[in-house]
Amino acid sequence: MIANNLTRMDKGNKISECNECLHALHLLIDGEASDSQKEFLEKHIEECMPCYQSYNLDKNVKEVLKSKIEKKPVPSTLIANIKDKLNENF
């Protein structure tokens, strides 16, 4: 694998880049990365398979949470109760 060759070529650099990447990946997933962070992260995950896999898994977890957890319907009496309470108290 390319990633393995890279590791052997420049192990120290690679590890610190991966550290930086793994600490900042959430910024990319959450749309919070600055332009320079985005550039670094996108380039790194394009070249580094383990980091790409981390990114892909975390991105999927986020999507699964959003798409699969069902919304609870608001109880039909709740809005009326709130309005009653507001009228009583204010």
Binding site: N56, L57, N60, V61, V64, L65, K68, I69, E70
Partner: peptide, 13 residues
Amino acid sequence: IESLQEMIGDEVA
């Protein structure tokens, strides 16, 4: 990821 995608909402919750 495949396991994740097979899970249903209640399991994720």
